[in-house]
């Protein structure tokens, strides 16, 4: 990554200030944006898509889009809302294409117990992540994959990424009532799917 031309400490700047600097030609500001949002977007897209490779491609595409379409951002909404909107739209397009040209891996033929999960080992941060947490996260991800993608999108934004309802409305462009109802329905279905975990607890 190229350092900022002006040598300003970009880490103290807000997201909106960074994008304005980048619009003026500060590539260091763009690097700072990438550093701030790459993991957040990867986590969100992974929970939404359920495949790490696809997730990586989508996040890469999102940053390329930000780079090429920097002039389109205006200070109407938050930068986080804008970049998440780009990522959601790209993820939806990817899902639609995947459904259109549906392919299946050989691993899908086997039972769920033998199924490989696309969770990067290094992403978990090392040896402290034990096998139980790995299994639990895989089980939750499976449950998320089973619910409708409209519900999944909003549940992830609200309960995993911890966005407010207003921000979700801005990102998705849906009415508030629709967002709430979809989040509640998604939660209900997810709770049903994760009954066993709650019983044990």
């Amino acid at each position: 990554m190229a350092p900022s031309k002006e040598g300003i400490n970009t880490k103290r700047l807000t997201d909106e200030e960074l994008i304005f600097n980048f619009q003026e030609g500060d590539t260091g500001a763009y690097n700072e944006i990438v550093a701030r949002y790459k993991d957040r977007l990867t986590n969100y897209i992974y929970r939404y898509v359920g495949n790490y490779d696809d997730c990586d491609d989508i996040v890469q595409d999102t940053f390329v889009k930000v780079y090429t379409s920097k002039h389109l951002y205006k200070e109407i909404a938050k930068f986080s809302t804008w970049i998440y909107t780009i990522a959601i739209n790209l993820a939806k397009t990817k899902i639609v294409k995947a459904q259109k040209y549906k392919t299946f891996s050989i691993s899908d033929v086997y039972d769920d117990e033998n199924k490989d999960f696309d969770l990067p080992d290094e992403a978990y941060g090392g040896p402290e992540v034990d096998a139980n947490s790995k299994f639990l996260s895989a089980h939750i991800q499976k449950a998320l994959d089973k619910i409708n993608e409209n519900y999944r999108e909003l549940v992830v934004l609200r309960d995993i990424e911890d966005f407010s309802y207003e921000e979700i409305v801005d990102m998705t462009g849906l009415p508030m009532g629709t967002v709430k109802s979809r989040i509640n329905r998604g939660r209900e279905k997810l709770q049903e799917l994760l009954k066993d975990i709650y019983k044990e607890e």
């Binding site: 993991d39 990867t42 986590n43 929970r47 996040v59 969770l119 992540v129 309960d159």
Partner: peptide, 9 residues
Amino acid sequence: LRTLPRVKA
């Protein structure tokens, strides 16, 4: 859901 491990790039 919050306790889920964060997936990094």
